[in-house]
Design a protein around this nucleic acid. Structure first.
Lengths: 120, 120
DNA sequence: CTTGCCTCTGACGTCAACGTCAGGTCCTAG
DNA sequence: CTAGGACCTGACGTTGACGTCAGAGGCAAG
């Protein structure tokens, strides 16, 4: 059983973030007799997964809706719909990022041919 | 010369957003004698570009630093560095999104085999 | 026993990109 | 010339994922 600081260090997020995750219902935190949080070992992996979904643009509410399905391996039709919806949204986001990347590349190519001195 | 509402309608952003862009120095807005904003036709394209960069995770400050280079076609070494930095950041973001997408796909595949009834 | 670090619970602060509201001006169709 | 939509400038409100601070308790070492 890990203490909160240990989980934070291993997963690369802040202690505050872990308490926030618990508050949002994303990460259960069993307590020691004195009331301190004691996390199972796999909490670190769960945190990584949560972070991945955050980075993909999901909100805490979105994550909360998908987590049961993720951890149990079963899904209701409504959950499946949400999963597909999120996947499509991510696909769209990747497409948008790709377009932005191409535009930036274009600017970079043109810029290389017209480099001027710094304005200091 | 377009009025602000017209630009908003054509570019798909709000009037408030356009005023915000001006406030941030991202989009110049010449004024009519009575003080109303009159935009040149290409303002719509500029707004689209700004939106694209926002969607790619850049802040107003980031956009402000890159815009001169974009519109003049010339870049200082410092600007080139920022351009490359942003491009790399976007690449990283695409990679992260791709990982998230793969994980979600995995969940979807497993979920398909274990669909249960709705709870309620 | 005490020092010092970790942890606890509130609860207010932050930051970005706007939303929204108030009170006043502009302008164009009828 | 007037009604009503579009526009103006402040200025406060919003949202999400935490940061940060205050005050108090827990815990292993010496």
């Amino acid at each position: 059983m890990l203490r909160i600081g240990e989980v934070a260090a291993r997963s690369g997020v802040s202690v505050r973030a872990l308490r926030y995750y618990e508050e949002q219902g994303l990460l259960a935190a069993p307590r020691s007799p004195s009331g301190q949080r004691r996390y199972p070992e796999d909490a670190v992996d769960r945190v990584h997964f949560i972070q991945l979904l955050y980075a993909a643009g999901l909100t805490s509410k979105d994550v909360l809706e998908l987590l049961p399905c993720v951890h149990t391996g079963t899904a209701t039709p409504a959950m499946m719909a949400r999963l597909l919806e999120q996947r499509d949204r991510i696909d769209g986001q990747i497409a948008e990022l790709t377009r932005a990347r191409e535009r930036l590349d274009e600017v970079i190519r043109v810029g290389r041919e017209h480099v001027v001195a710094d304005a200091s």
